[in-house]
Design a protein around this nucleic acid. Structure first.
Lengths: 136, 136
DNA sequence: CTTGATCTTCCAGTTCCGGGAACCTTATAT
DNA sequence: ATATAAGGTTCCCGGAACTGGAAGATCAAG
């Protein structure tokens, strides 16, 4: 499969896909004409990269996550340790995203879109634990 | 409050906080000595920025989100439209994060960490809809 | 009053791409 | 068969979002 199709199926721009190859995140085959030739598992990796990047993981974190199921030379204990640490981070992100969702839902429900609103109560957007009574 | 305290309370490096000021995301007061002086609501904004950036929103998206509850000159219909569109994106991210969490949980449970594992079934990491039977 | 921590500005470097040039290959239309 | 467009290649430069370091001012402590 050419880079255009891989781009469509992964949701990543061709430019980005070439960049990921440059920094060693995947190494597709080359066809006789010099074109990159993406396998199904290449596209799989690309889709995963698209997702995890859009969820706020750095490229190096993505590399780690990919190694969890790509690297056969890795020790089981390593895999487990990395997975556990990433799991904790994912769970924290889930909590924060859910709070953001709730705040946005509130906003959508309470600001009818017909006139100048009040739309307060987005304090939860900044999470608990910081400055509480802030009125911005 | 000085920038060091604001940094601690928001989780953002002082460098980043100054950068956010440069690009107009907030404008703290200045004390007599020239030091930046952060209010509770400034810290509130900073905490929100830290969160939303770590959840994969671009700086411009964060600016939009902040304007949802900061900008009194904005029309109610605008607020509602932006909130609805961001809400959809947040819900998509929530779904993907939950899938990633499930995959990591599976990994943590099934790879005991004592010997060489098999650890397959991380296909769900790349989500459904793309290459299916990929075995990486 | 000196020392160390923290603040200031400014400039340079890094990461993660995106735009565009210059060129080659493939598919389509005449 | 041939023009033409569409899509591929490398390369290099520019931009977004920081990050590190230098040079200097300020503050809190001994």
């Amino acid at each position: 499969m050419n880079i255009g199709a891989a781009s469509q199926q992964s949701g990543l721009p061709a430019k980005t896909i070439r960049y990921y190859e440059d920094i060693g995140l995947l190494t597709p085959d080359r066809a006789g004409n010099g074109y990159r030739d993406y396998s199904a598992s290449d596209v799989h990796r690309l889709r995963f990269l698209q997702r995890s990047r859009s969820l706020g993981f750095s490229v190096e974190e993505c590399r780690q996550l990919l190694s969890l199921y790509g690297d056969h030379s890795r020790e089981s204990a390593d895999v487990r340790a990395i997975a556990k640490s990433k799991l904790a981070e994912v769970e924290r992100k889930l909590t924060e995203l859910a709070e953001l969702r709730d705040a946005l839902r509130h906003l959508v429900r309470n600001c009818h879109g017909d006139n100048r609103p009040e739309c307060p109560i987005l304090d939860s957007l900044a999470g608990r634990g910081g400055a509480r009574q802030a009125r911005i």
